[in-house]
Design a protein around this nucleic acid. Structure first.
Lengths: 108, 108
DNA sequence: AGCAAAGGCATAGATAATCTAGGCCTAGAA
DNA sequence: TTCTAGGCCTAGATTATCTATGCCTTTGCT
């Protein structure tokens, strides 16, 4: 992964995390990830919407049509209880793997 | 990624890092990653050898047949100058992306 | 009124990386 | 001699991401 690309396998975790405080619509999820990461990460729409579809099917989020702050018809995504559990689990997995990576990188 | 799985996109970096101090043969690369990560990471052979092939084709490593410590015919892999540059570049990319991820995860 | 730009959802197809599951061979131990 | 661990490798499936679209609406500019 270069420039603004994502690290494969982490997009789901980031989306769930952004949804944790409350419902957010698709487009805004991408914007928040971009802003919160200080422009380091950029989620393409072609990655975002398929990811949201997967999460819907797994039951980690629910979607609801509504109106955005800018007066547009949007789909708000909301974490389910299962989604909350999934987020915790992904965080644990990520932390563990990251620790492994950092061990190798520092001590090799 | 769960249990002992790898984080996609980081295997190349880990292999290059293990090869940095000097030539290592394939099987031993996997063992070292496993050991150095305190058993947190497990590289499957079906991931390892294709990754080494890719790196050979990109010119990041060179391979040479030899005899292992256990008296077996093995292929030692050695970093090239390009491989060394690639390693630095992947480390920078990874650090940048990781910082982005951690920003999102902490501040969302 | 007309048009462009930006906001917004979505899919198809290509690409890439990993895992599963095998195959094959050898040295050394039991 | 037979078994186990060490060792190399590939085929095929799976999964996630990106590129490139298409389409619709609101707002603002001319």
């Amino acid at each position: 992964m270069a420039k603004n690309e994502m690290l494969p396998g982490t997009l789901g975790m980031l989306i769930l995390r952004v949804l944790q405080p409350g419902p957010v619509h698709g487009y805004a999820i991408a914007q928040r990830i971009h802003a919160l990461s200080k422009e380091l990460l950029q989620v393409e729409e072609g990655s975002l919407y398929p990811a949201l579809q997967r999460m819907l099917m797994k039951g980690w989020v629910r979607a609801e049509w509504g109106i955005s702050e800018t007066n547009r018809k949007v789909r708000f995504y909301k974490l389910t209880a299962a989604g909350r559990r999934q987020l915790q689990s992904e965080i644990e997995d990520f932390d563990r793997v990251l620790q492994g990576i950092q061990s190798v990188m520092s001590k090799a």
